[in-house]
């Protein structure tokens, strides 16, 4: 593969963003951007047009946009967008909703590095 796949990380927790970035970069992906809230995530998606978005489903609302509506927005902008939802265990309903909106897959915290890479590669079709 010629160019590195570009990934956008949307997560309100710095710890998570760092963890995701380190894991993905080490495996040869390019982190094209990071957002710390849903609204910013949608803006960055428009701007960067990444190959893949990882998105924390539970984020504080910013101007009526939270994690779940961010998924909806992003899919509206690009029906082919590849969104992986990241969630904690107890959020089944939210994740289901995100999947209905068109998220490609999900991963539950806590996850291992292999699992993260597995889902990212699968969604990217590698």
């Amino acid at each position: 593969m010629g160019t590195k796949k570009r990934i956008l990380i949307v997560d309100d927790a710095l710890f998570m963003r760092n963890l995701l970035r380190d894991s993905l970069v080490r495996s040869g992906f390019e982190i094209c951007g990071e957002a710390s809230n849903a609204l910013e995530g949608v803006e960055k998606f428009k701007e960067l047009k990444p190959d893949l978005v990882t998105l924390d489903i539970v984020m504080p609302k910013m101007e009526e946009i939270d994690g779940i509506s961010a998924v909806k927005e992003i899919i509206n902008l690009d029906p082919g967008a590849k969104v992986i939802v990241i969630s904690a265990l107890a959020e089944r309903k939210l994740v289901q909703q995100a999947l209905i909106y068109g998220a490609k897959d999900f991963i539950a915290k806590p996850f291992t590095c292999e699992k993260l890479l597995g889902v990212v590669r699968k969604v990217l079709g590698e």
Binding site: S87, L89, R92, V95, Q96, L99, I100, D105, F106, A108, F111
Partner: peptide, 13 residues
């Protein structure tokens, strides 16, 4: 697999 219910749901979706 965590959240197998949602996983199954995804398979069906």
């Amino acid at each position: 697999c965590f959240m197998k219910g949602v996983r199954a749901f995804l398979v069906l979706e």
